[in-house]
Every structure is written in C-alpha cells, then in structure tokens.
Amino acid sequence: MINKETVNYVGALARLHIDPQNADRFAKNLEDILHYVEKLNTLDVSSVKPTSHVLDVENVFREDTVIPSLSQDKAMGFAVEHHKGFYKVAKVIE
C-alpha cells in the first residue's frame, strides 16, 4: 500500500521536492503501477530466461590501456564552484 509517507520517503531518497498537494495523487499513481506489476506476477514465466539487459549483447570489454584524462582546468570547467583544483560543495560532516 503506497501512502503519502512512502511518496515523501522515496522523494527524499531521490532528492526530489514533492509538493504536498501532489503527494496523494502520486501515491495513487504509484499504487496503480504496483497493481499492474502484481498482475504480471500472476503469469507463469518459469520457462522464460530472466532479462538482465535489454540488449542481447555480452562480454563487452576494454583493454587495460591508459588514455589521456581531462586537464584539471577542463575538469573544473563544469563546476559551479571550485577551489585550487577541487570541486567545492556544501559542507558535509562525518
């Protein structure tokens, strides 16, 4: 049973802001999705191989060969804030 609390919890894990007005509606939507999955669960799939990937491809590797990395300047170019070659983020304390 999906309720408002579950919606808010999942929202918090995903760093999503859930508008209180929408929480009930999302709960109902998610509940509908779960019902649909439950319906799928009634099918007998014992003879079907589980799909672990949508592509029918296996064993894609790269060899252990170094290719040039980005320069520090370029790496810093994506950052909102940086300091002496480090990305600067809001303080997190352990």
């Binding site: 790496a75 804030e81 300091h83 002496k84 070659g85 480090f86 990305y87 600067k88 983020v89 809001a90 303080k91 997190v92």
Partner: peptide
C-alpha cells in the same frame, strides 16, 4: 571555507 572539497 566552510565547505567540502572534492577530488575525483
């Protein structure tokens, strides 16, 4: 700096 610095 009152910030955390990240090295990837």
């Amino acid at each position: 700096l009152n910030a955390s610095l990240v090295d990837y």
